[in-house]
Design a protein around this nucleic acid. Structure first.
Length: 650
RNA sequence: GCCGCCUUAGCUCAGUGGUAGAGCAACGGUUUCGUAAACCGUAGGUCUCGAGUUCAAAUCUCGAAGGCGGCUCCA
């Protein structure tokens, strides 16, 4: 048996023990610096600033926070407290309700005391039975459940810190920093409710979020970045530059103001242009439907709680001589009231089934910018990112089963073309598989899930599996991007639906003269225009490129002596199809520039007597700064060049 | 929907039980001005809504609506 040393001792021997080493990795696993291991182990130092080092620091900080909380709020039970992307959290079961913002300051103070004592984090192995007994005695019922969930035979470790007699202990895999003194840059950021084990049927726990860094400086930098991110929040920008508006008369349903509507329409126009090239046809379909449609599609039953229903007076009218409907209003409404469409697919199935289809018509790619309504629960709506009324760049592809993979591949190509045009490079892909609540047999699901996975693999894209997160009618590939505050949102999607064609009994006549069942792909690139708008707005910080900017240039007069010339310039540029306005107010030039900048117009054109003489404009670019004087036509040329949509496929 | 917090002028925000304030925006006037805020004035509020406590409520209590941070759910 070889001897055991701490990784610290091993590093020291090799001269690798720097001050900022907080842990080591052995065979890819992060472990404590201070818990003995096999003396011959290959250890690699982990610095405090490494992602893994940060994780260790944050997880250790979560322990210290839990310690502080249990000191300050006796009777509070601990649950779990992991490190997360930008910090950590810990969930508590606290008698008497939630923590307040003031509590956070108190907790931080107590944490500082624990940190000041710089006591070591000690690892101890224990047995399942012993751990269950010990935590049971402490009344830590949630911890007992956690221990019970650890597979039989696996080693259970405890981590303790604190002075003798007032040690704080948690069941934990580790690793941790050597001692609490290393946790000097901590900030508790917010309180929130969270369900035990993430299930809304479970009791709600009290979560505290915080973050920790190796140094005060790094922490301050992080907090500053958060402040900057908040300044690009689309809800703030949308208000500032008057893009959209919300009102309590239509909760979570946006009002697009003139400038926002311009951008919105440009987005639609851009996608329409690509549809031409990629072989899509557009249709326009109704807004409200007889509920029979959604019974056929399965939406009523699987999507009930998200659907808006409409009632009309005649539902409750009673013909003379007839008995009133014995059912209550709820039953009558559920049975007969029309429904606002939450998706376009049933309409497209209706169109597909409206005439005899031939294999020569396939694949049929049918696009629809129809407005959709989905009732979203109160707590989930969020600016433009999650709304109750929206429109998707939606399309369905009806094709033969054997052409599915080609269609998927070509869709992914189109999707990446669009994302790159908007300069989105950081795209997360997930394959969401069959949910519990679903329609259709398992063999269909097997086939559908495999088809999507193959499509992704064929395109050479890495993806993450999201078991149980598919739509009720089929599995889906989701394309995610993050907003300014690092919240991830799904934009595009492609979904394989083996069920709807079945339910609508859709067929086409094959080459063999027999009837065949087509398959259906649901797909969107931008996803919902609303959500895409929000993400893109944050992505460009409100600085829309010239092709999509609602106003491309603003003519600023030095004084009202130049008003006449300003009007001429505006007319000349407008005649070339450019979107230009003039600021002829009594403000001084400095103020006009400031105002124009706040609207984030791409170009400011200063005009005074000098420019009038030479038919020029003093060009100031939002992105490139001062460009100097330029002939009006030369400027028009330049701006026209920037006014073309990013690309078209060729 | 659940937990917590918030809601005062178009916007951003002061105002801790004695009857409402600032800056910006708007409007009127003066200024004729050269690259990130000229000056003076005017108007604008059932303090989100509804109940209650109190001699008195923006302020305290309860309820509702909307919003914010999370959770759960989703494009």
């Amino acid at each position: 048996m070889s001897s055991r040393l701490t990784p610290r001792e091993i590093l020291k021997e090799k001269g690798l023990l720097a001050d900022d080493v907080v842990a080591v990795t052995i065979g890819g696993k992060t472990v404590d610096l201070h818990t003995p291991v096999d003396a011959t182990a290959e250890v690699t130092p982990v610095k405090a600033t490494d992602p893994r080092g940060l994780e260790v620091i944050r997880h250790s900080t979560a322990h210290v926070m839990a310690d502080a909380v249990q000191r300050l709020f006796p009777g509070t039970k601990v649950t779990i407290g992991p490190a997360i992307e930008d910090g950590f959290y810990y969930d508590f079961d606290k008698p008497g309700g939630a923590f307040t913002e003031e509590d956070l300051a108190t907790i931080e103070k107590t944490m500082a005391e624990i940190v000041a004592k710089a006591t070591p984090f000690r690892r101890e192995a224990t047995t399942r039975a012993k751990a269950i007994e010990d935590f049971g005695k402490m009344g830590e019922t949630f911890k007992v459940q956690i221990i019970e969930a650890i597979p039989e035979g696996e080693e259970i470790s405890l981590y303790k810190h604190g002075a003798a007699g007032e040690e704080w202990v948690d069941v934990c895999e580790g690793p941790h920093v050597p001692h609490t003194g290393l946790l000097a840059a901590v900030k508790l950021t917010s309180v929130a409710g969270a369900y035990w084990r993430g299930d809304e049927r479970n009791p709600m726990l009290q979560r505290i979020y915080g973050t920790a860094f190796p140094s005060k400086k790094a922490l301050d930098e992080h907090l500053k970045l958060i402040e900057e991110a908040k300044a690009r929040d689309h809800r703030k920008l949308g208000k500032e530059i008057e893009l959209f508006h919300f009102d309590a008369v239509a909760p979570a349903m946006p009002f697009f103001l003139p400038r926002g509507a311009y951008v919105y329409n440009e987005l639609v126009g851009y996608i329409r242009g690509l549809y031409q090239e990629f072989g899509y046809e557009e249709v326009i379909t109704p807004q409200a439907f007889d509920p029979r449609l959604f019974r056929t599609s399965g939406h009523l039953g699987n999507y009930n709680e998200n659907m808006y229903r409409l009632w009309t007076e005649d539902l409750f009218e009673v013909e003379p001589g007839q008995k009133p409907d014995p059912r209550g209003p709820r039953e009558v409404l559920q049975d007969a009231s029309f429904a606002l469409k939450p998706m376009n697919c049933p309409s497209h199935c209706v169109i597909f089934g409206s005439k005899k289809r031939s294999y020569r018509d396939l694949p049929w790619r049918v696009a629809d910018f129809g407005r959709l309504h989905r009732y979203e629960r109160g707590g989930v709506v969020h600016g433009l990112s999650r709304v109750r009324s929206f429109c998707q760049d939606d399309a369905h592809i009806f094709c033969a089963a054997e052409s599915v993979s080609v269609e998927i591949e070509s869709f992914i190509k189109l999707l990446y073309l669009v994302y790159h045009a908007f300069k989105f490079e950081d795209i997360g892909i997930r394959l969401a598989t069959r949910p519990e609540k679903r329609i259709g047999g398992d063999d269909l699901w097997d086939f559908a899930e495999k088809a999507l996975a193959q499509g992704l693999e064929r395109a050479g894209l890495a993806y993450e599996l999201a078991p149980g997160e598919g739509a009720f009618y089929g599995p889906k590939v989701e394309f995610h991007v993050k907003d300014a505050l690092k919240r991830s949102w799904q934009l595009g999607t492609i979904q394989y639906d083996p069920n709807l064609p079945e339910r609508f009994d859709l067929t086409y006549v094959g080459e063999d003269g027999k009837e065949h069942r087509p398959v259906m792909l649901h797909r969107a690139i931008l996803g919902s225009l609303e959500r895409f708008f929000s993400v893109y707005l944050e992505h460009c910080g409100g600085n829309f490129p010239a092709w999509i900017a609602p106003r491309q240039a603003m003519v600023l007069t030095v004084s009202d002596k130049s008003d006449e010339y300003a009007r001429k310039v505006v007319a000349r540029l407008k005649a070339k199809g450019l979107r230009v306005e003039a600021d002829t107010s009594a403000d001084k030039l400095g103020a006009k520039i400031r105002n124009a900048r706040m609207t984030r117009v791409p170009y400011m054109l200063v005009v005074g007597p000098k420019e009038a003489e030479t038919e020029s404009v003093g060009v100031r670019s939002r992105d490139a700064g001062e460009l100097g004087a330029m002939h009006v036509d030369a400027f028009a040329e330049r701006l026209l060049g920037e006014s073309r949509p990013p690309r078209s496929a060729s």
